[in-house]
């Protein structure tokens, strides 16, 4: 029960173009836990994730990794932080000019300084883990959306991140391709990867998440265990948001999916 806190986010404020996108956001993630960010578009979920690895530096507040606050002004600390925090993007952002193998390998060589052989071995291991060992020579334009996202997961995992940030990893995918990416994410959760994920896949994430954080207008307005927030009589914002999504999609969005695999 007392897993150590890996990532601590405190009082993050971010203003873009005079508009307050994040308004005093705080939460922390323990080792092996999965926090899921839910909420309407424009709530600040993506910006919050981008603040954590300073792709979009927060105006104020503190990000601490492994108990050590990161100094956003130190280039060295920034680069070190980003090495340890993996990120998965909604639109994959694979490097278009590199094969799947090189996408996974490039940072191992250029950032971690591995020699080519060690980097290749590691990259192939990660591609195998996401079921794409046989696609290693293909280029992003030759892969399906689901395959691209799995390569991007392999690329992030190869760096041995302490935390993985996932920014709506399935939102850009055709419905029939979502499953293969969710399976990979589920495997990661089972393996104890520490993750923060923004998603609209509420019923899927409810079965894996340790906590839901419901965001609205730059604030976390509700937090709690999925089962508690999604209970029909909870009267929570999460529940009504989910009911709305589910009405639009016409499926059982707010049901908590059966426990992952037997």
């Amino acid at each position: 029960m007392d897993d150590p806190v890996i990532l601590r986010v405190e009082n993050i404020v971010k203003t873009i173009g005079g508009q307050r996108i994040l308004d005093d956001v705080s939460f922390s993630v323990k080792k092996g836990h999965l926090k899921v960010l839910i909420g309407p578009s424009g709530a600040g979920k993506s910006t919050l994730l981008a603040c954590i690895n300073f792709l979009s530096p927060p105006d104020s507040g503190t990000i601490s990794l492994d108990g050590k606050a990161v100094d956003g002004k130190s280039r060295k600390e920034l680069l070190a932080l980003r090495q340890q925090v993996g990120m998965i993007f909604q639109d994959f952002n694979l490097f278009d000019h590199l094969s799947a193998l090189d996408n996974v390998r490039v940072a191992l060589v250029k950032v971690k300084g591995l020699d080519k052989r060690a980097a290749t071995n590691r990259a192939m291991e990660e591609l195998a883990r996401v079921g794409l060992a046989d696609k290693s020579t293909l280029y992003p334009a030759q892969l399906s959306g689901g395959q691209k996202q799995r390569v991007s997961v392999a690329r992030a995992l190869a760096m041995d991140p302490k935390v993985l940030l996932l920014d709506e990893p399935t939102s850009a995918l055709d419905p029939e391709l979502i499953g293969e990416v969710l399976t990979v994410i589920r495997d990661l959760a089972d393996l104890g990867m520490t993750m923060v994920m923004a998603t609209h896949q509420i019923s899927f994430s409810a079965s894996l998440a340790d906590e839901f954080l419901f965001m609205e207008r730059g604030r976390i307005v509700e937090r709690g265990a999925p089962s508690q927030l999604l209970a029909r009589d909870s009267g929570s914002r999460t529940q009504s948001f989910c009911a709305k999504l589910s009405e639009l999609a016409g499926d059982g969005h707010c049901e908590i999916a059966p426990a992952p695999r037997a």
Partner: peptide, 22 residues
């Protein structure tokens, strides 16, 4: 696409390395 540089930075590449390699 802006995502190319973002992804490179997210992996811990310095801007110099990202510009050269990506």
């Amino acid at each position: 696409p802006a995502g190319q540089l973002k992804a490179a930075r997210a992996l811990g590449m310095s801007d110099a390395v990202a510009i050269r390699s990506i």
